[in-house]
Amino acid sequence: MSTNGAQLSVRLALLALVAVLVQIAAVSQVSVFGATPDLAPLIVVAAGMLAGPVAGALMGFSMGLFIDFALLQTLGVSSLVLVVVGHFAGRLRETVRDPDATLLPLAAGAAGSAVALVVFSIMQFLLGVESPVSLELIRQILSTVLINTLLALPVYALVRRILAPSLGDRGRDKRGRRGRRPSPISPLIQP
């Protein structure tokens, strides 16, 4: 493994650890409109988009496993959901026409959160639920997706900042660079 690869792995592992602790100890205890923000899909989406599908899937697996262990939930459910989210977030960046589009992390964060919450619920149904399920659950999922959408851009920016030193060119804000440099046909450029 190259130095950059090793450095990236360490950064991803530390990010996963800190993010899960922040989620459990602080974010989960904040309720907005009866719903709780869920940082895990946002961070996995950001990691996948910045570091690629393999890193995204590995990040999803380790974060999910840590969440399930820390909260004593059914092991493997969160991992399975977040592995898929991380992989497809990485693939998304490779398939879109403009991977540096401003709103791409926002759309990816919203879609990743929706997929994670819906697939998690489907998994719970498949594993068997003895209690009735309230329709309120749908409202909670929608509220969480909405809150996560609002948080998607700041979380993406934060993850990029943390991973940037290990990402080389991929971690740089190309939009910013383009914005500062005048276009070749700009009247500001003197021949």
Partner: peptide
């Protein structure tokens, strides 16, 4: 192929954990 193998491995590991739980 490497990507698919990693994805398949992680999905399989998750399913094994679910079963073991």
């Amino acid at each position: 192929r490497r990507r698919r193998a990693v994805l398949g491995l992680l999905v399989a590991a998750s399913l094994i954990l679910v079963t073991a739980s």
